[in-house]
Simulated scan of single mutants.
Amino acid sequence: MMKSILTYIHGIPIRINYIKNLPYNPKLKQFTSDKRKAGFLGEVLFWKQVRAREFHKIDFDRQKIIGNYIVDFYVRTLGLVIEIDGWSHDNNQVADGLRQKYLKSLGLKVFRIADFDVRNNISVVMKDLEDFIVLHYKVN
């Protein structure tokens, strides 16, 4: 059986890993709009790198509701959550741990990056994201 290829990163085929039927809390919809409008710098800078399929032709969603959480970015075709940890995550390790455990229980992978790194080392962040995707989604 041939696995469906989403894209290639540096010649390495990346497989589709679509997670179906994710839980969704419609009560959070207004919060997603508010978060987008707030435009935190790290999220805006990251979005400029990935919007309109500019990053290896991969489609990213911004402020995606999954269960009772809003994740910063989501790649539906990979089942990949990208979280940019800024000041709101300081002293919040327990809540972040529960959130990450929940997301992983749904079969999702979570890539966490520091807001500081996005603002100051975006090229390194994008390389780390490439490496993460290759590690977890390359065709075997």
Rank of each mutant, 00 (worst) to 15 (best):
12 I>S: 04
84 I>L: 07
9 I>P: 06
113 I>E: 15
26 P>Y: 08
28 L>N: 05
83 E>M: 06
22 L>S: 07
68 N>P: 03
46 F>Y: 15
12 I>D: 09
57 K>L: 09
140 N>K: 08
129 L>V: 09
13 P>H: 01
130 E>C: 08
133 I>K: 02
115 D>F: 00
97 G>A: 12
11 G>N: 10
6 L>V: 08
21 N>C: 06
107 G>H: 03
43 E>H: 00
81 V>K: 02
44 V>S: 11
25 N>R: 04
39 G>I: 13
14 I>H: 00
54 E>L: 12
133 I>Q: 10
77 T>C: 06
125 V>K: 09
68 N>A: 00
135 L>E: 15
42 G>D: 11
114 A>I: 01
30 Q>P: 04
49 Q>R: 11
15 R>W: 01
119 R>D: 00
133 I>L: 11
35 K>P: 04
67 G>S: 11
5 I>D: 13
42 G>K: 06
58 I>D: 05
71 V>C: 07
102 Y>P: 05
82 I>S: 02
89 H>Y: 14
124 V>G: 11
132 F>Y: 14
1 M>T: 06
110 V>N: 13
16 I>S: 12
60 F>N: 00
76 R>H: 06
31 F>I: 12
124 V>C: 04
28 L>H: 01
137 Y>G: 10
23 P>F: 07
31 F>L: 10
120 N>T: 14
35 K>G: 06
125 V>H: 08
86 G>N: 03
63 Q>L: 04
42 G>S: 09
27 K>I: 05
82 I>A: 08
105 S>V: 04
59 D>Y: 12
16 I>R: 05
50 V>Y: 05
92 N>H: 13
12 I>T: 14
15 R>C: 14
70 I>Y: 02
74 Y>V: 03
34 D>V: 11
128 D>K: 09
122 I>H: 03
16 I>F: 07
96 D>K: 02
30 Q>C: 04
38 A>W: 03
26 P>F: 10
82 I>W: 03
68 N>E: 14
79 G>C: 08
32 T>Q: 10
81 V>E: 07
16 I>M: 14
131 D>H: 12
100 Q>L: 03
74 Y>D: 03
34 D>I: 06
133 I>D: 15
11 G>E: 11
5 I>C: 09
57 K>G: 09
95 A>S: 08
92 N>Y: 13
44 V>L: 12
43 E>D: 05
52 A>Q: 05
128 D>S: 15
117 D>K: 04
84 I>T: 09
132 F>D: 14
65 I>M: 07
104 K>L: 10
97 G>Q: 13
106 L>F: 00
130 E>I: 12
68 N>T: 10
65 I>H: 02
64 K>M: 06
130 E>R: 04
109 K>R: 09
135 L>K: 10
20 K>C: 07
